[in-house]
Amino acid sequence: MEPTFLKSILDNDFYKFTMQHAVIKLFPKAKVRYGFINRGKHIFPSGFADLLRKSLDTMANLRLTKDEKKYLSHYCPYLDPTYLDFLQGYSYDPSEVQITQEDSELNVIIEGYWYRTILWEVPLMSLISELFYKSNHLIRLNDDAIKEVTKNKIDSYNKMGVSILEFGTRRRHSYDVHSLVNETLRTNGAESFLGTSNVHFAMINNKRPLGTHAHEWFMFHAAQYGFKMANSISLEHWTQVYGGDLGIALTDTYTTDIFFSQFDKKYSKLFDGVRHDSGDPVEFAEKVISHYIKMGIGPKSKAIVFSDSLNFDKVKVISDFCKDKIKMSFGIGTNFTNDVGLPSMNMVIKLTEVKLDNTHWQGVVKLSDEKNKTTGTPEMIALAKQVLGI
């Protein structure tokens, strides 16, 4: 079987580039490790690791083109020209990724300087997903059927009058399906479809890419500054780099309750809103609205971006609750890019360890609002809970 080739260095989620920009400024010497977590217990066929390695090796040839650089300069003016010059000279180094396979179990470890390795996670997951379906010879719906499924979904969201974002790069069925979905959303999205987190497809759509930061931003800060200070210093550093742009804060790295206890009036006013990624979405919305009222801020001036395993029914329930209370939008991932008549994959690649200046490797922790999304060693999880009083 032939390897899969990515078509662009921008075929990645936007928050990877925004975080890379910030890491280069603030933590250029930090080293990290990421690990693959097979949550769905998927069985990988013999030879899968070799196929993934061949596909990954071809990524070393990707380069930022002049047109892509011009696009970023126009749509993302908060990215420094020096960073865009860096990105133009950047190339993936496949030696940063170790891939092994024991029977049907796939193991992937990424290691190196954070400012370099931060770009691997999303395209690597999209390759694993696409190659999984190819190597198992699983047949998807045809192109017309995928377009019809996507059109029906966005038509329903149009009628509901909600704002929809496409967040499905990591676990997409394939590049071709992702392209079909974005083409259909662009054609039929009317006022509902705001765009995509995938920078490559955002450029094709002639829209600005969407996204801010991910859990790893907060996880690294916990290792550097301690669990109690992780949220506050993460937000402070973000505002240092972006000065109010990209103002949607992720809340659940160390549970939403801990986050809001530290999301003081300064940050509550400075950030445009928050992102929901785990736990009950309506309970979350209630907490957000109550928090802004407590801070003396009108909730209608703020926004929630919901992004946790959404489908039409979930969006309807959330929209009915939030309507006329707070602004909202919905980042829909796998339900758009992997609804092809096959079971979608359940997998992640997460930051596992960091190595700060002149120190040893240190494990990192994520304490989600859902237990199955918590990551880290039992010892580090227990320590984080003890320190944070959870």
Rank of each mutant, 00 (worst) to 15 (best):
S234E: 11
M347Q: 13
F306C: 05
S234H: 07
M59E: 06
L64T: 03
L72T: 01
N12V: 11
K265W: 00
A30I: 04
V288C: 12
K294N: 12
T169Y: 07
D277I: 00
V365T: 07
K287V: 04
I43D: 12
Y157S: 08
D57R: 00
I289R: 03
A249P: 03
D67E: 13
G298H: 06
I164A: 03
S179D: 14
N335Q: 04
I109N: 11
A145N: 08
I154E: 09
V365W: 02
N231E: 14
E379Y: 05
R172P: 07
E121A: 13
G112E: 12
F5E: 15
T82D: 01
L131N: 15
V177Q: 02
Q101Y: 07
I248M: 11
K350N: 11
F259M: 13
V97W: 09
F227W: 07
D280N: 15
N358P: 00
E216V: 00
G226K: 03
D264G: 08
I248A: 08
Y115I: 03
E148N: 13
D308A: 12
T4F: 04
T169M: 10
R208I: 00
K350R: 10
H276V: 04
S156Q: 10
I128V: 15
N198Q: 09
N335S: 07
L72N: 02
T256Q: 13
H137I: 04
G273N: 05
I326L: 02
A303S: 11
D143N: 12
N346Q: 10
S129K: 04
L84I: 01
R33K: 15
T334A: 04
W217E: 08
N152G: 15
L367H: 02
N231P: 04
D176S: 13
S8D: 09
D369C: 06
V122N: 15
Y113I: 00
L383W: 01
L131K: 06
A145E: 15
A223G: 10
L210F: 09
I332M: 06
A60H: 07
M125R: 08
